[in-house]
Nucleic acid binder design. Structure first.
Lengths: 342, 342
DNA sequence: TTGAAAGCGCTAACAA
DNA sequence: TTGTTAGCGCTTTCAA
């Protein structure tokens, strides 16, 4: 059904070898033959069988990415932007992208293992690193190329790109403290996630810098979704002595928290301050627009992908790891100076 | 470096063929040999080389999906949910998912062509169908398996799943008209997109049902992003005789429109009604919560994927195409009965 | 400048 | 029940 080297060889009366070399522009093929072969290939509509090339070359020119999904209503805008970043870069560098979806957990590792052992991909991009990350342990120990977006607490060192979440959260804590808030809550995320850990830590430290101690009762944990942000913020507002400011671990939860506050009749930016983290496009047009920390997800995807491909090709990396300083984006969800009504 | 059938064969003193058959549990292999081979495979940590299997089988067990991206800040929650739907189903049925990102346009077709001709995928999932869709023309003419989420105006028929956007928009138009709105605007999307066309059409018809004619000046076009929703809604509100209701072609633009209205000091749900389409998770927790049309994206992804795999395996489809009736989700962005203040 | 031959790892038709 | 042989489509030594 489809044109192979053999077909071309037959047509031009040369060997398969010669045809292969002609097509690859080897210089031990006469110009005439090359011309002949190229024309025939063109005419016959030849396209190389990549699978065959891969078997021979023992490499797949494919990058693996496993999307951590959480139930059917999974839809974090974060990931489509990240995916666009790696996808575009991969395409540009001639790599394909093999994506799997998998909820984090036991089974997850099998998905990685299978792709590695069956030679389906040349390397992996890891996201949502965990403090103790079995995926990273596995890949390290297997000596398989990968680059992570995020750090871990593991001993093994590996290339990564990360935002300095601690620093970002400190920025936010200072901002809130400077606005005069005292009763400040933190809408945290599961502690096993490395970035969640950093963000909580950074926030605590930031408040401490300003002589405020983060009250244990003021820390609640959500699952990073808007829905849970709503739920957890509600519980915070139900407290006998509710916070005047809520810092959420990510934008989505912050958006949920805004809803929760508004449902209570509070005016966000006046009665209560709310902040996010990530600066997803939605943050700009929420009501009120969200004060948050900007993370250039697309560029991070782009960078991670480039690093991985260099790694696969054993080219030297400019630096093994990149820790970016994020920036504070002040919008309206914190309003002006907060004056305690009491 | 890695264990092959040959290695196992050598170890157990059998031929490669026998080993292969033993591992596949063919019944022309003696139980003892099977036992022996399985144990050896286990011991040696054998995993089949999938690339080799693919070359031999002439199929890839891989599904292609090309994510239509639009610039770096691309992040439509729609797609991550859809991706989760197809990804999970594909994994369940033993298929991999090859994802590419590509802005719609000239070059796009090359990406499809390459994947088809190089045998990288067994079939494609197409999204964001266009009225005249060259991707579909190409795949049809090439006789390559694919299933689309969305229809086209092409002659060729092909399997698809779609929501009845026309019907959905009619629902919304009726709702708005029943609330007493007269000056109603439509925040449309590029007309070449099939669903955008249907949605505009449905909306027009719905208003006509209620004896209202959609004013040409009341139709503006956005690019489906929140940012553009904001911009276009602003232009609508700038009109000398601004609308009392805006129906947006999708939720993201509706969210942008809400911002625009609020920036003007309007109370959405009271001074102005705004509706969306899609019912993305964000719609539930926007401020105010968005009245919209529910589209079960995850399930659609799941279904499309299942259909494609059946198609690849030449199993009969229950039905060649599925047109779902969407449902209206009434929340607060339209408020109560609208009484014209004049 | 070209071609024969081997081999990537696997499956399958056929023979024994 | 097992092994031999061929072949999927390609690249790459090696020899001519």
């Amino acid at each position: 059904m489809s044109v192979t080297l053999k077909d071309i060889a037959k047509k031009v009366g040369k060997s398969v070898t010669t045809v292969s070399r002609a097509l690859h522009d080897y210089d031990d093929v006469s110009p005439e033959t090359k011309e002949l072969v190229h024309r025939a290939a063109e005419d016959m509509g030849y396209t190389p069988n990549i699978i065959a090339q891969r078997l021979q070359k023992q490499r797949t020119d494919t990058i693996g990415f496993i999307l951590p999904t959480f139930g059917p209503r999974f839809s974090d805008p974060f990931f489509s932007e990240f995916l666009a970043g790696i996808g575009n870069k991969a395409a540009k560098l001639g790599y394909d992208l093999l994506v799997s979806t998998h909820p984090p957990g036991e089974e997850e590792l099998k998905t990685y293992r299978r792709k590695v052992q069956s030679y389906l991909v040349d390397g992996f991009i890891i996201v949502r690193t965990r403090r103790k990350d079995t995926r990273i342990e596995y890949l390290c120990q297997a000596g398989f190329p990968f680059v992570a977006f995020g750090r871990t607490e593991e001993a093994c060192d590996f290339p990564y790109v990360d935002e300095d979440s601690e620093y970002g959260m400190r920025l936010l804590a200072h901002h809130l403290a400077d606005l005069g808030h005292q009763r400040i809550a933190f809408l945290a995320a599961p502690e096993e996630l490395m970035f969640a850990h950093f963000r909580l830590k950074g926030f605590e430290e930031g408040l401490a810098d300003k002589g405020i101690q983060l009250d244990e009762k003021m820390v609640v944990f959500g699952d990073l979704t808007q829905r849970d942000g709503f739920r957890q913020a509600t519980s915070l507002l139900d407290l006998p002595d509710p916070p005047t400011a809520i810092a959420a671990c990510n934008d989505l939860m912050a958006l949920g928290a805004i809803s929760a506050a508004q449902k209570r009749g509070l005016i966000v930016g006046k009665d209560i301050a709310i902040t996010g983290f990530d600066n997803i496009p939605l943050a700009e047009h929420s009501h009120p627009p969200l004060t948050t920390i900007h993370q250039p997800i697309y560029q991070i995807g782009d960078m991670v992908c480039e690093m991985l491909i260099k790694r696969i090709n054993k080219e030297p990396l400019r630096s093994q790891s990149v820790l970016q300083k994020p920036t504070l984006v002040i919008r309206e969800s914190c309003g002006e100076k907060y004056i305690n009504p009491n």
